[in-house]
Amino acid sequence: MTKRIAKTGLFVALAMIFSYIEALIPLNFGIPGVKLGIANIVVVAALYQLNIPEAAGISFLRILLMGILFGNIVSLAYSFSGGVLSFLGMVICKKLKLSVIGVSIVGGVLHNVGQLTAAAFILQSAAITYYFPVLLVSGLVTGFLIGIVSYRVNKSLDKLSQKHTDN
């Protein structure tokens, strides 16, 4: 039990570091909302290494803490709806036996969809749907890249825990 709590805490910390690194990279695609989403590596890994409630906890704690530390209520609402939609989608896809890459792609796409929907509500304007197709494709591409990394991370973690149980 303590081991799981420690692990979860480690994952949250890692996810926050990844979010922070992401914010440091001045990657401007000219479209609001397009980013790599490297923190999702941690969430995907948690989904495979831990169980669903723990992964959910990690994802939402990360969003909440990053929002409190660096954001405001608006940006929090924004990432929260992205996070919820993305997480639910990933859980469903995992159950549907998609591979890590497929799960990551769906996560990336739905994260963008969630953020876009929140933005449309906050702005009370449908103008933002103009970005919809772009964000779908960007979610697909970044989800794919993140998926490959997550696959490798999972493989290493699997080996690592194998060794642990062996010893």
Partner: peptide, 17 residues
């Protein structure tokens, strides 16, 4: 390993966009 379901998901996203 990517399976058929992955590609279905990708196809859905591509068609939508």
């Amino acid at each position: 390993k990517m399976n058929k379901r992955d590609f279905i998901a990708i196809a859905v996203v591509l068609v939508l966009s």
